[in-house]
Amino acid sequence: MRRAQLLIAILFLILGLAAPLVVRSDYLFQVLFRVFLFAALGLAWNLVGGYAGQLSLGHAAYFGAGAYGLAVFSKAGIHPWLALLLGVLLAVLFAALIGGVSFRLRGPYFTLATIAFAEVLRVAAKNLAAVTGGDVGLQVPGLFVKSSGRSLYLAAVLLTAVALCITAWVSRSKFGYYLMAIREDEDTALSVGVNATRCKLRALLISAALTALGGGLYGSLFLFIVPDQVLSIDISSEMAIVAMLGGAGTFLGPLIGSVILESAAELLKNIFHEAHLLIYGLLIVLVVLFLPEGIAGTLAHRLRRKSAIAAPPFKAPGPVSS
């Protein structure tokens, strides 16, 4: 089972790396870039939202920090790659601050706090025109000089590979088990000596760094960013939905989610034009109603049931919410 998942992931990455040999159209490259970018972002979100069960809707803060870090620091004369690194550092700094405050909260309060932080950053970026260019936007340097679109695409594939490696490590390391214990029951995890705050914060820092790298690639592809785009709640919710659609807390989930959601979004845009958000909303509603564990989660459930058909699966009683 584990090995099969790993094989699928590797096959997926190889296909991604081989795509430039076949694909020629720029448009298709952009779609593929989005698929891999959001696979990486979904994987990043999954560390915090899936494995640790901390449902953040404020990851746009780190995405924006990466994009704006790249733009602002390179405008100050720093080499783009170094600027990107500084952007990642900025995102990690934000994550430490945001995590420090919001990890004390639980459930919907945590989610609301993460949204609020991202929104404060968005409004600040809109208004601090001297640094960020405000609503007018800011130019982003290209990270690659030669054949930029193709190189950025390959960078996105690489980022997905890194995110997959980290996820593979998390899903079978002690650290990962701590996170899952926190997700299932934070109080019990605390009582057996898991340092919940430190684990959650560490997961968030890793997640933020990956997200910021994604933000930098995104900015570098479009060469221009505005606050309402890279810091909007739409980015945060798209990351979450990619992971939830595929299956939060699963290894392959975000990958599957991104392939389906991003290609569906692109198709919907071409077929339905203005109605694509409506269909997108409908898709979310349907997933919540009929695939609450996501595609990978539901599949795993089915397989497990098939293999253990004699013994009825033990179902742990869900946490009683007051």
């Binding site: 109605a275 958000l277 909303g281 979310i284």
Partner: peptide, 23 residues
């Protein structure tokens, strides 16, 4: 189910309302 399911459901429904009105 979890709160986050409600968040996603209401977010999705909000999108349907907003885009429906826009159409």
């Amino acid at each position: 189910r979890s709160d986050f399911m409600q968040i996603l459901l209401t977010l999705g429904f909000g999108l349907i309302l907003t885009d429906g009105i826009q159409l």
